[in-house]
Design a protein around this nucleic acid. Structure first.
Lengths: 125, 125
DNA sequence: CTTGCCTTTGACGCATGGGTCAGGGGTTAG
DNA sequence: CTAACCCCTGACCCATGCGTCAAAGGCAAG
């Protein structure tokens, strides 16, 4: 399977696949004699996993930092990442949660300060 | 007063002052015969106001969009922006609050999904 | 063989709020 | 006059996750 078909099967674009490969999230696939990348079902599953992790708020660097342990998560329905060996050992998920918490509280403080200026009620949930 | 001194007095840098001017937040000051910008106390107060608005989470575009009404807020201790004529009429503050709310809830959802994966408790406030 | 779609690499674009550098000129103290 | 700063404009840099474009070659159908 060439890159276009593989990308479509994984719900993304050829550009994204090359990008993941370049940044170390996706191992470099074998090439045809003429240099074209060749993907199989394994790679597609891997790309789906990468996309799910990214959509959960992890950064490309986060995922790349534990790329060598990602295969432990492939196949199952994305259960407990901590148990998978990637999250707990390296702490990427915990650090990302902490970063999200920090950003959330920063934005919340800004929101409340702005609301205080206009007299808006500070309780929109 | 030249730009370096004015910037220091306002707690920022010459680059920021030129940037605000270029983006329409700060009116272009008079120039000396040799082309150097000349600032007075009014401009410095204006820059302080701009910085306060930006630090509250408004964007450069937000502030630029009501730059012609900013003088209504200068001098007083940053009271109710809505009453100042800038916020309520143009709605910039309300829109920015809505954008912050949207971003906060987006990040909160991500955080909770990530926490659910690791079994972390979802109550760090 | 040609047409037309697919792939390759490399490089620039986006948005934010300025930081930093380059090359050239102003300004002021000694 | 000169050193030592300061200012001018224009242009590139940062980080994120790719999108988009360009030039050149591959691949399958007619």
């Amino acid at each position: 399977m060439r890159i276009g078909e593989a990308a479509a099967a994984a719900g993304t674009t050829p550009r994204a696949l090359r990008f993941y490969e370049q940044r170390g999230l996706l191992p470099a696939p074998p090439r045809s004699r003429t240099g074209q990348r060749q993907y199989g079902a394994r790679e597609i599953a891997r790309v789906r996993l990468i996309r799910e992790l990214l959509s959960l708020g992890l950064t490309v660097e986060d995922v790349g930092s534990c790329a060598d342990r990602l295969h432990l998560l492939e196949g199952d329905a994305l259960p407990d990442y901590g148990a998978g060996g990637c999250a707990q050992k390296s702490g990427v998920v915990e650090r990302r949660i902490a970063a999200l918490d920090a950003e959330i509280s920063r934005l919340t403080r800004l929101r409340d300060q702005l609301a205080a200026r206009t007299g808006s009620v500070s309780m929109p949930r």
